[in-house]
Design a protein around this nucleic acid. Structure first.
Length: 952
RNA sequence: GCCCGAGUGGCGGAACGGCAGACGCGACGGACUCAAAAUCCGUUGUCCGCAAGGGCGUGUGGGUUCGAGUCCCACCUCGGGCACCA
C-alpha cells in the first residue's frame, strides 16, 4: 500500500495490485464522492435569502449552468440520458477552476402521464412510484460524480414547490395585457380603468353591469381565461386521452375503443399577446440559429389583410396574406367548424355538409393540412360577394382550412395559391389570373406563355405584373412587386370599408387544462354564478386529494353523449368547499382539471436559485444575482442551458412566456429565462430483428463481415432510440461496473461533439480506460504504489507540448468541445509516456497541469492523483493552468505549396517570411519546379505563414 | 405534408474557405512470455507501382472560387418537432 494512508484494496485476478481497473476506480470514486458530500464542496453560496453566505460569494463572477428538467422515468437511466449532464458538469467544473461561483443543480419534473398510467394499471399511488423513481435516478447520478448542489434538487410534486406553481398561475390569472404599454399589468389596474370610464367595457358603463357581467368583461382580458376547446373523449376507457394515446384511425391506443372529439370548458393562456415580443427578443438571445428559426416559424407572424365578403348570413371575414390577389378570388372556403356554416348551408346540401363536418372532426390538424392528400370539400350551396369584382362567388367548406388560424375562412385564389389551385381543379371551379408569370416560369414547365390558366400546371406565386386587377376605385396595374400591390390594395380596402391590413399568427393560445389526476390542482374555485375566483395566497397550496381508485369509470364505448368526467370530479368532498374569499364563508366548487406537465418546467430554474424560501418563489436579490441582466440591453437569464432539440419549440416558448409575465409584473429582473442555449445530441443505438421481425437482445448479436447473427440465425440491423421495445438498452450501472464512472464520463465526452447525435458502442469504451491507465501509470507504479514523479526540469520539447495542450484544452473546454480537448490530453500523455519510458519518471511540472486539466472530465481520478502528488486541497477550486505564450511561439513554419490548387510540396520557412520571398522559395523547390515544368505562374496566391498557390 | 438538422476510412469522429482523415476503436505486424492475457513499439482511406512517386477520394448532380468536407442551388437517405409525451 502506498504511503498516503489510502485504504485502496488491490485488484483480484492476475492484474498488478494498483492497476487502474473498474475495481480500483470504484473505490477511488466512492472515496471522493463521500468527501465532496461531507465537505459540501459543490454547495453554491447565495448573496441573500435562506441560503445566504455573502462572504463566500465574494468578488467572484457568477455562472448559472442548467440542464433541462428530467422526468424521472420508471425504466431508470440508460447511457444516453447523462450525456448533457456530464457535459454541463465538465463545463461547470472548468469554470469553477477559472474562478466562477457556479450554480449547478438538478431537480425532477415529477408530475406527468406515465406515473398516472402506472397507477391505473397497478393501483399504486403515483406519489409512491414517482418517489421511488426519483430515488433510483438520484443514486445513478450520484455514482456519476456530478458536482451538483444537492440542496437545490427540487421536485415539482413537492407541495413546497407546487404551492409556488399555483401562485404563479394566480399571477397570470390576475393579469391582463396592456397593448398600449406593451406589457402585462395587474387586473386591478384594468378594473380601475373601467371604473373611471377610461376604457370601454364593450357592454356599456361599468356601473350598470351586474357581478356576472363584470366578471365576463374582466375575464375577457385575463392572461389565463376559460374557453371551449376540444378533447379526445374515450367513453370506453372513461377518460380523456392525450393525442399520442389516440391512433391514426381515431381509436384509443389501449383497448382500441372509439375516441370522440368533444369540447370542454378549459383554462387557456393568452400567449398570443406576447407573440411579437417572443419573436423580437430572440434577436437578443445566444441560441443556435436553427432553434430561433423554429420558434419564429412556430409563432408564424404574417402580415396581410382582413377582408369582408358580403353574404346572406352577413359579412364573412377572411384573413389573407395576399390581398393583392383579391381580384382572382373565385370562391371562398370556410373551415367545417365555422360558425356561419349552419346559416349559409342550403337545404339541398345540409346532409352532405353534416356528414363532411363529422369526418373532418375525426382528423388531426397535421393530417388535414397535409398537402399531399387529395383535396376534399363540400359546397354550401350559397354565395358571397367578392368586394373587388362585385361578383358572386360560391362558398365551400374544406378540412384544409382550420378554425384556429386567421378567421377560419379563406378567399380562394386558385391562380396564386397551390392549395386553392388543387381544390379548384378537383371541383371544377374557375381559375382567373391576377399576375403574368415570367417567361422563365413557363419555360421551366414546358408550356408557352399564356394567361389562360386552364393551361397552367399549378399556381404562380411571386412578383409579376398584375392583370385584370382593376375596378372603378383601384388598380394594381403598374405594380411590379407583391409588396407594392399589397400596400395599394390595403389602402383601398380601408378606404372602401371592405377590410384593413392585419397581422396574424400561427401561434395559438395555450391550452392549459388536463383532465388528469397527477398534476397541480388549479387554485381556482367557482361561485354560485359560475364565476372563477382565485384561492387566496394564505390557502395555498391547494393539495391534491387522495384517490382510492385510479381507474376511471368505463362507459359504453359508443356512448358519445355522456359528459367526460375528470378524476378529481369524483372526489365529492374535495370539490365542494367552504371558503372565505373576503365576503364571509360561502360554498364553492373547486376546479377539477389539473395543470399540464409544462407548468413546473416553466419556472423550475427560478426555484433552484432559492429552493427553501418560504416567503417568496425566489428572493429578488438572489434572482438578480444569478439571472439578472449583465448590462443595458442584456436579457438576463441562465448563462448556459443544455438540453435536446426536441424542446426547441414548446417548452422553450412556454417558459419564455411565463418568465415575461413575471418580468412585466416586477417579480424578476431578467426578461428571458435562458440567455444561452445549447442543444446536445442524442445517443442512439443499433437494434436487431430476426426473420419474423421480432427484436432480439442487441447485446447478444454477433457481427462478422458486415452481417449480423443472433443464436446463429441472421438478423437485420436498424438504428434507433435506446429502449425496452428495441432491446438495446445499455445502462450507466453496467458502465460503472465494467469501467468506472470516470472512464464512462470520458468516453461519453470523447465520442464526438456534444451537439451531435451518435450511436453507442460499448466496444469503444476501453480506449478511454486505457488512456486513464497510462496516465495513472505515469503517476504511480502499479505494482508498488510508489510515485513515479521527478522534480527536475522537463525537456524543452515536452514543455512546449504541455503549453500547447494547455492553450488548446482551455479553449476547447470554454467552447464545449470536450472531444477535441480529450484528444489533446491524450497526445500530451502519449508524449509524457514516451519520456517516462526513456527517463523512468514524470516531471512534476508536466504531470501536475495534466492532472488539473483532467479534473473537470475525470474528477475522482484527478483528485486521487492530486492527493498522491502531495497536494491537500481538492481540485474543484484550484486554478486551471495557464499557458505561457512564449512556449507557444515557434521560429519556423511548414508551408504547403500548391500548383493549380493541388498540394505538391511543403517548405519550411521562418515565421513572417514576406510574400515575394515565399513565392521565390516555393518556385525553387524541386518538386514544385517539376510540376511547373518551366512555365511561369500566371497568378500567385499567398496566405502568409499558411500557404502558397501557384496558378499556371 | 410542413418546419429544423445531419451525411467524411471497416466504426466513432478531426479539419478559421487553405496540408482531408487529429484522437480513439477495430485490424495487421513486431517486442516481452513456455503460452495466453495485459503492456510496449510500428503499419493501417483507396487504386497503380519493387520503390520513388502518381491517380482517385468527404451521400448524388450542378455552381461560385486561385483553392470547397466547409459557401450557393437541386436531389437522395437518415434523425428531431408538429401544440394533450415532455
Amino acid at each position: 500500500m502506498s504511503a498516503h494512508g489510502s485504504s485502496l484494496q488491490g485488484n483480484e485476478s492476475g492484474a498488478p495490485p494498483l492497476r487502474y481497473t473498474a475495481h480500483l476506480a470504484r473505490q477511488i470514486e466512492a472515496k471522493w464522492q463521500d468527501q465532496w458530500e461531507r465537505d459540501r464542496t459543490f454547495e453554491a453560496p447565495n448573496p441573500a435569502g435562506p441560503l445566504a453566505e455573502p462572504e463566500k460569494v465574494g468578488g467572484r463572477p457568477k455562472l448559472f449552468v442548467l440542464d433541462m428538467f428530467p422526468y424521472p422515468s420508471g425504466a431508470g437511466l440508460h447511457v444516453g440520458h447523462p450525456l448533457g449532464y456530464i457535459g454541463t458538469d465538465v463545463f461547470a467544473r472548468f469554470k469553477r477552476m477559472t474562478g466562477f461561483n457556479v450554480l449547478h443543480a438538478l431537480g425532477y419534473d415529477s408530475f406527468g402521464l406515465p406515473a398516472e398510467q402506472h397507477a391505473i394499471v397497478t393501483g399504486i399511488h403515483p406519489r409512491i412510484n414517482t418517489e421511488s423513481n426519483v430515488a433510483t435516478m438520484r443514486r445513478q447520478l450520484r455514482r456519476l460524480g456530478l458536482g451538483h448542489d444537492a440542496r437545490r434538487s427540487v421536485s415539482t410534486t413537492d407541495e413546497d414547490f407546487y404551492r409556488w406553481t399555483q401562485w404563479i398561475f394566480l399571477q397570470v390569472f390576475e393579469s391582463w395585457y396592456d397593448r398600449e404599454a406593451g406589457r402585462a399589468r395587474p387586473i386591478a389596474e384594468l378594473i380601475g380603468q373601467f371604473e373611471r370610464g377610461e376604457r370601454d367595457t364593450g357592454r356599456g358603463p361599468w356601473g350598470a353591469l351586474g357581478p356576472a357581467e363584470r366578471a365576463a368583461v374582466v375575464d375577457g382580458h385575463r392572461l389565463a381565461y376559460l374557453a371551449d376547446a376540444p378533447v379526445n373523449w374515450c367513453p370506453g376507457l372513461g377518460t380523456i386521452l392525450a393525442n399520442e394515446e389516440v391512433t391514426a384511425e381515431g381509436r384509443s391506443d389501449i383497448g382500441n375503443f372509439p375516441v370522440f372529439k368533444r369540447t370542454m370548458r378549459q383554462w387557456t393562456m393568452r400567449i398570443t399577446a406576447y407573440a411579437d415580443r417572443l419573436i423580437d427578443d430572440l434577436d437578443r438571445l445566444d441560441w443556435p440559429e436553427p432553434i430561433k428559426l423554429m420558434q419564429r416559424n412556430w409563432i408564424g407572424r404574417s402580415e396581410g389583410a382582413r377582408v369582408r365578403f358580403a353574404s346572406a348570413a352577413g359579412p364573412i371575414e377572411v384573413f389573407t396574406t395576399r390581398p393583392d390577389t383579391l381580384f382572382g378570388a373565385t370562391f371562398m372556403v370556410l373551415s367545417p367548424e365555422h360558425p356561419l356554416v349552419d346559416e349559409l348551408v342550403s337545404d339541398g346540401q345540409r346532409a352532405d355538409v353534416a356528414a363532411y363536418r363529422a369526418r373532418a372532426a375525426s382528423l388531426a390538424d397535421a393530417e388535414r393540412t397535409d398537402a399531399t392528400r387529395e383535396k376534399t370539400g363540400v359546397s354550401l350551396g350559397a354565395t358571397a360577394v367578392n368586394p373587388a369584382t362585385g361578383r358572386e362567388v360560391p362558398v365551400w367548406i374544406a378540412d384544409y382550412v382550420l378554425m384556429g388560424y386567421g378567421t377560419g375562412a379563406i378567399m380562394a385564389v386558385p391562380s396564386g395559391d397551390q392549395r386553392d389551385f388543387d381544390f379548384a381543379r378537383e371541383f371544377g371551379l374557375p381559375v382567373v389570373p391576377t399576375q403574368r408569370p415570367p417567361d422563365a416560369w413557363f419555360e421551366a414547365r414546358g408550356i408557352p406563355p399564356t394567361l389562360d390558366c386552364s393551361q397552367w400546371p399549378g399556381a404562380y406565386v411571386g412578383d409579376g405584373p398584375y392583370v385584370g386587377s382593376s375596378n372603378a376605385e383601384v388598380t394594381l396595374e403598374g405594380c411590379d412587386t407583391v409588396d407594392a400591390a399589397v400596400a395599394r390594395m390595403n389602402a383601398w380596402l380601408e378606404r372602401a370599408g371592405h377590410g384593413r391590413s392585419a397581422v396574424t399568427y400561427k401561434l395559438r393560445d395555450w391550452l392549459f387544462s388536463r383532465q388528469r389526476y397527477w398534476g397541480e390542482p388549479f387554485p381556482i374555485v367557482y361561485d354560485e354564478h359560475g364565476v372563477a375566483r382565485a384561492v387566496p395566497d394564505a390557502l395555498l397550496p391547494v393539495r391534491l386529494p387522495e384517490l382510492d381508485d385510479f381507474k376511471p369509470q368505463a362507459l359504453d364505448p359508443d356512448d358519445e353523449r355522456t359528459d367526460p368526467i375528470p378524476p378529481l370530479a369524483r372526489v365529492g368532498q374535495w370539490v365542494d368547499v367552504e371558503m372565505d374569499l373576503g365576503d364571509g364563508p360561502r360554498r364553492y366548487r373547486r376546479e377539477v382539471n389539473v395543470m399540464p406537465q409544462w407548468a413546473g418546467s416553466c419556472w423550475y430554474e427560478l426555484r433552484y436559485l432559492d429552493p427553501t424560501n418560504r416567503n417568496a418563489f425566489v428572493d429578488p436579490e438572489v434572482e438578480r444575482y444569478w439571472m439578472g441582466p449583465t448590462g443595458p440591453g442584456h436579457t438576463g437569464g441562465v448563462d448556459l442551458y443544455v438540453g435536446g432539440v426536441e424542446h426547441a419549440v414548446l417548452h422553450l416558448l412556454y417558459a419564455r412566456f411565463w418568465h415575461k409575465v413575471l418580468f412585466d409584473l416586477g417579480h424578476v429582473s431578467s426578461e428571458e429565462p435562458f440567455h444561452r442555449l445549447f442543444n446536445q445530441g442524442y445517443i442512439q443505438a443499433w437494434a436487431y430483428r430476426d426473420a419474423r421481425g421480432q427484436t432480439v437482445p442487441a447485446a447478444e448479436v454477433a457481427e462478422s463481415d458486415g452481417s449480423w447473427t443472433w443464436n446463429g440465425q441472421p438478423v437485420t440491423r436498424e438504428y434507433g432510440k435506446m429502449g425496452k421495445s428495441l432491446k438495446n438498452v445499455v445502462t450507466p450501472d453496467e458502465m460503472y461496473d465494467e469501467y468506472g464512472a470516470d472512464t464512462f464520463r470520458l468516453y461519453e465526452m470523447s465520442m464526438g461533439p456534444l451537439d451531435a447525435s451518435r450511436p453507442w458502442n460499448t466496444r469503444d469504451v476501453v480506449g478511454m480506460q486505457r488512456f486513464l491507465q497510462r496516465v495513472w501509470r505515469n503517476v504511480v507504479d502499479e505494482d508498488t504504489g510508489e510515485l513515479r514523479v521527478s522534480n527536475g526540469a522537463a525537456p524543452d520539447a515536452l514543455r512546449r507540448e504541455l503549453h500547447r495542450a494547455i492553450a488548446g484544452v482551455a479553449d476547447d473546454m470554454a467552447s464545449l468541445r470536450f472531444n477535441t480537448a480529450i484528444a489533446k490530453l491524450i497526445e500530451l500523455n502519449n508524449a509524457l509516456t514516451a519520456h517516462v519510458n526513456a527517463a523512468g519518471s514524470s516531471p512534476r511540472e508536466v504531470l501536475e497541469p495534466l492532472v488539473q486539466m483532467l479534473s473537470p472530465l475525470c474528477p475522482h481520478l484527478a483528485d486521487e492523483m492530486w492527493e498522491r502528488l502531495g497536494r491537500r486541497e481538492v481540485l474543484a477550486f484550484h486554478p486551471f493552468p495557464v499557458a505561457d505564450p512564449a512556449m507557444l511561439a515557434s521560429d519556423t513554419v511548414e508551408v504547403p505549396v500548391q500548383v493549380n490548387g493541388k498540394v505538391r510540396s511543403r517548405i519550411v520557412v521562418p515565421v513572417g517570411t514576406p510574400d515575394d520571398e515565399l513565392v521565390r522559395l516555393a518556385m525553387a523547390d524541386e518538386k514544385v519546379a517539376a510540376h511547373l515544368d518551366g512555365r511561369a505562374p500566371r497568378n500567385t496566391v499567398v496566405v502568409p505563414d499558411r500557404l502558397v498557390n501557384l496558378v499556371v
